[in-house]
Nucleic acid binder design. Structure first.
Length: 411
DNA sequence: AACAGGTTCAACCGCCCCTGC
DNA sequence: CGCAGGGGCGGTTGAACCTGT
């Protein structure tokens, strides 16, 4: 594997320069007096002048994609950029550093690991081993995804058209992806650059479990309608998001339901997600920005949340079960998931829920959805559409993960 | 209006890898 | 096979812009 040469694009020449080309270049430089090196010109072109670059505010969908792909891929901006047509890696990187990272931090989520900040406490107990294993798995998966991203890029070049980001993966690259991931599975070291890079960047987070568990979440209900992710492509079915019931202090269960429902199956999880945007007391809808994110994080790690009062933000938290109760609860709910998965299950639900809730709020702003009657963040029609989109979005992500035949013996 | 502090983002830097010789 | 040059990539910088006082 390796980077595709810059001149692989259709219609672009490669090979030795002809005298005519030399003359053209010289004439251009003479005429315009461009005192720039080639690298600078190239950067200017790729990051700014290219006609297919979309500029301006990132959309909600783009933000989601960035966050989730960052959870999967880490700081591999170019790989992330392949899923955001018309956005450059540089732009995504900047947007992450200036907006998204801060928001996650304010939510009490470590933007590097995508875990609740004080989740690190877990490392001091017996769970550290599991976490390390998962981190290792995530590195594999991360490398695999990068290979897929590369294939996506190549397919884009071949087709010459940009489709909407994620679905493209599942529609146009399925076969080749399989081949690639087989190779990756056979030899982790073959991922030379990506694996090397990942050694000096923080290990990819436990995102795979997030996604796997989300598959479990939506698998029962949504999978039937999802032709790609549905076919049992996964080697392992995570049975139930009930794992989330072992919420410790690390994550605040959102919006009622979690600690109270004694029957948290997949369906109820979806309802839970959907209801999360329908809390009363939402108060005035905030303009896009930081305020929207306040209150979604771990109150323990951010005093600001308690200052604002969670319920004031429309977050109808339950008092929550203590860890022991949750263990019992968990045991009662159709035994699932080894410890590690369960731990991450917490995160899955918590983090994703935070995002969904937040985006739900954002989505409710007139600015975002063009609807002026969603002032209270209520269950408008647009909102259900929104959640439907979220489901589809997540399914797309899951497809991305599940497209590997490796399907990982590691899971 | 002026200033300070904060934020944004295009450009640059340096490392690593690939390609061609 | 080894080397040099060039490109891709992630991290960092700093000028321009924004906001609050």
């Amino acid at each position: 594997m390796g980077r595709s040469p810059c001149c692989d694009k259709v219609g672009l020449k490669k090979g030795p320069w002809t005298p005519e080309e030399d003359q053209k270049l010289l004439a251009y430089i003479e005429e315009h007096g461009l005192q720039r090196c080639g690298k600078s010109c190239r950067l200017r072109w790729t990051n700014y002048l290219r006609p297919d670059i979309k500029r301006g505010k990132f959309t909600l969908q783009e933000e989601q994609t960035i966050i989730q792909l960052h959870a999967l891929l880490g700081n591999r901006w170019s790989a992330i950029a392949t899923h955001l047509p018309k956005r450059t890696d540089n732009e995504i990187k900047n947007y992450w550093n200036t907006h998204l990272k801060k928001r996650l931090a304010k939510m009490g989520i470590d933007p590097v690991t995508h875990k609740p900040i004080n989740d690190a406490l877990l490392l001091s107990d017996g769970k550290s081993k599991n976490t390390a294993n998962l981190s290792h798995m995530a590195q594999w998966e991360s490398a695999r995804l990068e290979a897929e991203a590369r294939l996506v890029r190549e397919s884009k070049l071949l087709s010459g058209t940009f489709h909407h980001s994620l679905p493209l993966i599942t529609t146009s690259t399925t076969n080749t992806t399989t081949a690639t991931t087989m190779d990756l599975s056979a030899s982790p070291t073959s991922t030379s650059q990506s694996m090397n890079k990942s050694t000096h960047s923080p290990p990819p987070p436990l995102c795979l479990d997030i996604l796997k568990a989300w598959q479990g979440v939506w698998g029962g209900g949504a999978r039937a309608t999802d032709p790609v992710g549905g076919g049992g492509a996964t080697g392992v079915d995570l049975e139930s998001p009930t794992s989330t019931l072992s919420f410790s202090e690390n994550l605040v269960p959102l919006n009622g339901g979690i600690g109270e429902s004694s029957n948290m199956n997949s369906t109820s999880m979806i309802e839970f997600v959907e209801n999360s945007g329908v809390c009363e007391n939402n108060g005035p809808v905030k303009e896009e920005g930081e305020e929207d994110w306040k209150g979604f994080g771990n109150g323990n790690s951010n005093p600001e949340f308690s200052k604002h009062g969670i319920e004031d933000n429309g977050m109808c938290f339950t008092s929550g079960l203590n860890e022991h109760e949750m263990e019992n609860h968990n045991n009662n709910s159709n035994a699932w998931a080894p410890e590690s998965t369960r731990v991450n299950g917490n995160f899955i639900e918590g983090f994703t829920e935070l995002l969904l809730k937040n985006f739900g709020d954002r989505n409710a702003t007139p600015e975002e959805n063009g609807s002026g009657d969603s002032e209270n963040g209520g269950a408008s029609g647009g909102e259900s559409d929104y959640y439907e989109e979220n489901k589809n979005y997540w399914n797309s992500i899951l497809n991305l993960v599940n497209s590997s035949p490796s399907d990982s013996r590691m899971f």
